[in-house]
Computed example of a mutant assay.
Amino acid sequence: MRHAWKLALLGIAAAALAGCSTGALQVADVGSYHVGGRAVTLSGLPEKELVFTPGAPPLKFDPNGDFEVEGLYARYTRLANPAGRYPLLLWHGGGLSGVTWETKPDGQPGWENHFLRAGWDVYVSDAVERGRASWARYPEIFKSEPFFRPKKEGWELFRIGETGSYDTDPAKRRALPGTQFPVASFDQFAKQSIPRWSTNDAATQAAYDAYVQKACPCVIVVHSQGGNFAFNSALRYPDKVKAIVAVETSGSPNPETTDFARLKGVPMLWVWGDNLERYPFWARITAQQENFRQRLIAAGGTGDRLLLPELGWRGNSHMLMMDRNSDAIAERVDQWLAKQGLKR
């Protein structure tokens, strides 16, 4: 019975991932797990009387006791005959979750689908405090309250429109000329926004490190805030991280104290969209990342750059994996990975 259930599940996954191309994917396995985290015991908190579901009698709830916190959630799809030599791990950015890589806000297949069809085993994760990794109490465990991204910030910070171009009325929003982001689906994208904490970096890094030890050797494709975690994991486990694709990464370790010699065997590709010069924040970010990249090259490592406007591709936002031309970008990434000898 269990074997039949698993075969049915795999069949459903293969059919669902058939997407926009002909022929079903040959899927060997699908599954998920939590990794990392720690055990915590709380005491001294007051009991409460709660009604857990409408119509049920009230029940005294004791919030004290033992908990598992600060873990990471990962979901994987493994192919029967992968072309990638290692699994490809997709890491999301700040205030987001693994949904970044799944179906795009306009309903088109996301990069998870694209890389599966390109022959990679693909893992999608939710970091500490995000999605199915779940929250923990604060300030007892998480040391600060969460903050929430308004739609205005996402519209402007992600380079969909300039500062002051957002309006509550979708008809009055002013997108950048020629933007590749599917503007009509922006409110759908905003539903993906997840509360985040500014005090959980150490716990998040520990969970990602545990993830790398469990899932790798691997290739990491990482977006925005996640870049710093990927670089640090590579520094700790250069034998396990076979390459990093840093998609508009917003952070990295201090180049003054980084041992770049440890990264010589980890080829890296930075991918950047358009209109970076319009935003002082992104001008600072790209300068910092270019410093990091050049130091990697000087140490004998591979630090390549894919600046989309240099290809004549204009209008890409910070969420370039959701843009209308995102499949073409993913194809360039796949070609680069093949060039590094990471595909059979």
Rank of each mutant, 00 (worst) to 15 (best):
residue 8 A to E: 09
residue 210 A to M: 07
residue 109 P to S: 08
residue 278 R to P: 01
residue 98 G to K: 04
residue 337 L to T: 11
residue 75 R to W: 01
residue 319 M to F: 10
residue 312 G to C: 14
residue 246 A to D: 15
residue 286 T to S: 13
residue 283 A to Q: 15
residue 235 L to C: 05
residue 296 L to S: 15
residue 147 F to G: 03
residue 339 K to I: 00
residue 18 A to R: 15
residue 92 H to K: 11
residue 169 D to R: 08
residue 153 E to N: 12
residue 136 A to L: 01
residue 163 T to P: 00
residue 119 G to S: 06
residue 298 A to R: 08
residue 336 W to A: 03
residue 155 W to K: 05
residue 144 S to C: 01
residue 226 G to H: 08
residue 121 D to K: 13
residue 202 A to R: 14
residue 105 P to L: 04
residue 39 A to H: 10
residue 67 F to L: 15
residue 87 P to K: 04
residue 78 R to V: 07
residue 207 A to H: 10
residue 204 T to N: 04
residue 210 A to C: 06
residue 26 Q to H: 01
residue 61 F to T: 02
residue 306 L to V: 09
residue 70 E to D: 15
residue 52 F to E: 14
residue 153 E to D: 14
residue 235 L to H: 03
residue 44 G to Y: 07
residue 256 E to H: 10
residue 161 G to N: 05
residue 80 A to H: 00
residue 195 P to S: 09
residue 221 V to C: 06
residue 268 M to T: 15
residue 44 G to F: 05
residue 39 A to P: 00
residue 48 K to F: 00
residue 66 D to S: 12
residue 35 V to L: 07
residue 17 L to A: 12
residue 337 L to W: 12
residue 277 E to F: 02
residue 185 S to G: 01
residue 102 E to P: 00
residue 114 H to D: 09
residue 244 I to G: 06
residue 328 A to G: 09
residue 306 L to S: 10
residue 65 G to E: 03
residue 90 L to Y: 09
residue 21 S to M: 01
residue 344 R to K: 13
residue 4 A to G: 03
residue 181 F to Q: 14
residue 46 P to A: 07
residue 52 F to C: 08
residue 86 Y to L: 08
residue 303 G to R: 06
residue 198 S to P: 00
residue 111 W to N: 03
residue 165 S to F: 06
residue 282 W to F: 14
residue 44 G to D: 03
residue 18 A to G: 12
residue 31 G to F: 13
residue 190 A to T: 09
residue 99 V to G: 10
residue 132 R to Y: 11
residue 212 V to T: 15
residue 215 A to N: 10
residue 84 G to K: 04
residue 267 P to H: 11
residue 202 A to E: 14
residue 35 V to W: 10
residue 8 A to L: 14
residue 62 D to N: 15
residue 275 N to H: 15
residue 335 Q to S: 11
residue 317 S to W: 13
residue 19 G to K: 05
residue 325 N to E: 13
residue 177 P to K: 11
residue 23 G to H: 11
residue 51 V to G: 10
